[in-house]
Design a protein around this nucleic acid. Sequence first.
DNA 1: CATCATGTAACATATGAAGTTACATGATGC
DNA 2: GCATCATGTAACTTCATATGTTACATGATG
Lengths: 154, 154
Amino acid sequence: MMRDSRLSSVLHGLLHMIGAGEPVTSEQLAQAMATNPVVVRRVMAGLREQGLVHSEKGHGGGWTLERDPADITLAEIYRAVGAPTIVAIGHRSENPGCLVEQAVNDALGDTFREVEALFLKRLGAVTLDALAKDFKRRLAKHKQNLEDQIHAAK
Amino acid sequence: MMRDSRLSSVLHGLLHMIGAGEPVTSEQLAQAMATNPVVVRRVMAGLREQGLVHSEKGHGGGWTLERDPADITLAEIYRAVGAPTIVAIGHRSENPGCLVEQAVNDALGDTFREVEALFLKRLGAVTLDALAKDFKRRLAKHKQNLEDQIHAAK
DNA sequence: CATCATGTAACATATGAAGTTACATGATGC
DNA sequence: GCATCATGTAACTTCATATGTTACATGATG
């Protein structure tokens, strides 16, 4: 099954925006996200509607973060990109009259709901800021590794 | 997103088989599952490979359950139908060199794995027999309701 | 007013589940 | 033996949907 990567994609873009400090164009984001500017605008439009980001036209325009990253959870971002289907497995039909179907749907349906709840709970526990800090840690470690290699080569 | 309904579908078929007591043809199962005989064979083939069901050709042939329903969990059936993707949300790319991507994938990846583990755990806790008994309870209750209606109408 | 950037519609592509057709294989009953 | 029934499977079509692309309108900047 083709998996929806809008959340992953937009997070990538947001981290870039946090690091930038000035408006980032769709063109730049598209390059960072390895996609097309139109796709960027499409997915970012959802975030703008929720007041998470702001867009500006013309020279010096582009996308900026509208709220404090420490107050934005991944769950909120997930909803902003359209709250795509979480569980890729489903019923053959909803609202079935068949008793067999009801038994099956009940057994699976409870599991689906539980799984979705866990997913949202986990996303709700991570802020954009936490993600950005994690990235910075990786960056610092990466630089350290490079330096270590240089020293070792001396 | 179009959700994979093979698990739901095959459970429906298996409950029918349990009730039957004799080989059930793909044609009959297709009718019960509101689909096509070829689709039934396709999905049942996975169960046969795992030794869960048996198929017989010719007159009086069809599908029979090969193992005790009390020993078959929904998790096993899920794997037998090909272990389709559980989480409909994914990464833009696997094995990225980009550090931003790594941070994002790590944060989401942990959640995905947790969610999938919960899904399998829940399915592993339900046996086919439990599902069949649940159905029988519904059936009994349904019959009772019908009788009550008849008595009330007298 | 030329340029830059977003906004959006319309269309194209890709993937994968599900449905369908066609024919081969094998078992049963007469 | 052979007609019939049922599975086995390949090949194709259909459908939904995320993603990619093209084209053009709108609005801001210098």
